[in-house]
Write a protein that binds this DNA or RNA. Structure first.
Lengths: 140, 140
DNA sequence: CAGTTTATTGAGAATGAGTTTCAAGAACAT
DNA sequence: ATGTTCTTGAAACTCATTCTCAATAAACTG
């Protein structure tokens, strides 16, 4: 998987120093940070980067399809690298942790439901919210 | 289906005049209004009702399970009567219109995926976003 | 490379949804 | 009626996000 900085270069998108520090923060993330978290992390690379630039750059990256804007009804948005293969989210209501999962049947079902309703599916979002069961196969 | 006002009465929830105008606005809605839309509509019944009361009452109704808080990533919430049987949403990206649909397979699949991941499903959200296909069975 | 245009920046002001505060007014319980 | 509790409208406030603007940095142009 290429770094976001690389993807920008390959696409001839201007990558300034402010953008570089933001993009590095996103590249290093293996979670789903919100804008202010991205700002905090980007500042570690370059303390001069402003909040405004973070919001502008996030918007710009979303517009260019390099990152995805997520929303779990928390009153703010989270972001993730769009290069990650498609997946859905499961929110652990016990801890707030966000897990990712895939299900081929689910993908096909979303397609077929859309078709049945007369729509061409652009994208979809399946979020599950639940509590870890005591006999969790994942454990903790 | 009982009106929200009736449900409040049966549950011995105090229904004041401000709440009545808000609840009537919700009862009359066959769409998915956001808080300010509810406020605008409630004012038609009683122009004195404040924005604060609308937010307070919406929160109160959600807490009592009479309405559901929806979120389509628009940066604000929408609401719908919780008495409506469970359904999912399909957002028409051409018009912004929100359609409702049901799919038994989808419900079972959400359950089984949660279980597989070691979670007890509390609730889930399946939103499809798409464009009406030219040969739409629903037409327009 | 100097000069000009265009894009991006940081700081802070502005916005907009939602919440809180507070004093006044209802509703309720004795 | 009296005191207690709840709810209200208005306005202040919060918080995430967007906008404004003068300054700077890049990218063109000759």
């Amino acid at each position: 998987m290429y770094s976001l900085a690389d993807v920008c270069r390959r696409r001839r998108l201007r990558i300034t120093s402010a953008r570089m520090s933001i993009v590095r923060a996103l590249d290093e993330a293996d979670d789903h940070p919100d804008a202010l978290t991205v700002h905090r992390r980007a500042r570690k690379h370059d303390p001069r980067v402003s909040q405004a630039s973070v919001y502008r750059t996030l918007k710009w990256l979303v517009e260019h399809g390099l990152i995805k804007k997520l929303d779990f009804g928390e009153g703010r948005f989270r972001y993730e690298n769009a290069q990650k293969p498609h997946h859905n989210h499961l929110v652990d209501l016990g801890t707030g942790e966000i897990l990712e999962f895939n299900d081929e049947d689910l993908e096909m079902l979303a397609q077929s439901i859309s078709k049945r309703l007369g729509f061409v599916l652009s994208h979809h979002r399946v979020d599950l919210f639940g509590y870890r069961s005591l006999s969790s196969p994942i454990g903790k």
